[in-house]
């Protein structure tokens, strides 16, 4: 039982890291209906920027603020250069654009900062500590706290601010939003900026786990089952989806691994997501279409 709890908690906490990546997707998808293929590349770009700035002698907080500023600037540039010319184009063109953006960002990141794997030490000791006999990773707890904070801030922003309300309005019906004078460009710039900030946090946490390297970009793929489980339009869904994926893949690895052979962790989330698609295609928290005449 104690072992089960340990696996479960470890899984849940590592799931938080998936949630963070998924969160970036949800923000952009919600406001613009675009699946931002480049979210993973943004994570890589953010982490690499932070590490490289620190390497060049900036103090930790300075590097953090500078990276944040760069991610926000990047969001504005993307809105201006990539999104604005594609307004009113079919969703597929925008998806293509974000795929192109992925390569640009990866190239840019490695061109500017180099392609060596870099270590990232946030200074949080990754030693497990004991909670009533159950070992919990301190780093995972820290990551979970950060994610929780980020989500709370975003949720409050969406629910109670003028711009947050405008974002939800645009997500619902962008024509109507436009007719009320809500400028789509502003809204898009805001969500991309938020997604950029989330990417920075995700990049730092993942980077300190895996090292800052090209593979960070691929965590995009890890987010997919999370999104299918949680729904593409729900912040809560991204969180719960991430927890589910984290917990179930660890449990599957430990309990099904001996039967089915190892490496389950890598494909189990996809199977789960596929099964889920059959039962509830809009995801756990995805917005149902309200069909009413």
């Amino acid at each position: 039982m104690q072992f089960f709890l340990e696996v479960l908690i470890g899984g849940l906490l590592s799931g938080v890291m998936y949630s963070l990546v998924a969160l970036g997707f949800v923000l952009i998808f919600k406001a613009s209906g675009v699946f931002n293929f480049a979210q993973g590349a943004m994570v890589l770009f953010a982490a690499l920027t932070f590490v490289s700035l620190e390497e060049r002698g900036l103090p930790r907080w300075g590097a953090l603020l500078a990276s944040l500023a760069i991610m926000l600037g990047l969001a504005l540039v993307i809105e201006r250069v990539v999104l604005r010319p594609l307004v009113n184009q079919p969703a597929i063109s925008l998806l293509m654009a974000t795929i192109g953006l992925t390569f640009c960002l990866e190239g840019l990141a490695q061109g500017v900062w180099g392609s060596v794997v870099k270590g990232l030490d946030l200074g949080i000791p990754d030693v497990p500590f004991d909670v009533k006999g159950v070992l919990v990773s301190q780093f995972d707890l820290f990551a979970a706290a950060i994610a929780g904070f980020l989500v709370a801030v975003l949720a409050l922003f969406f629910q109670y601010t003028r711009v947050g309300r405008a974002l939800r309005a645009v997500a619902d019906d962008h024509q109507a939003a436009l007719s009320l004078g809500i400028p789509l460009q502003t809204v898009w710039a805001v969500v991309w900026a938020a997604a950029g900030a989330v990417a920075l946090v995700a990049g730092l946490l993942w980077g300190s786990r895996l090292g800052v390297q090209f593979a960070l970009s691929v965590i995009t793929l890890k987010a997919l089952p999370v999104l299918i489980l949680g729904g593409f339009t729900s912040i809560a869904g991204a969180i719960v989806g991430g927890l589910l994926v984290g917990a179930s893949e660890k449990l599957a690895e430990v309990y099904l691994g001996p039967v089915l052979g190892g490496g389950i962790e890598n494909w189990f989330p996809y199977v789960l997501a596929l099964l889920f698609l059959l039962v509830r295609p809009e995801g756990l928290f995805g917005e149902k279409h309200i069909d009413r005449v």
């Binding site: 619902d172 019906d173 939003a177 007719s179």
Partner: peptide, 11 residues
């Protein structure tokens, strides 16, 4: 005020 009302359904 657009034809077909266009309310924000989830607001």
């Amino acid at each position: 005020v657009m034809e077909g009302r266009h309310c924000f359904a989830h607001l």
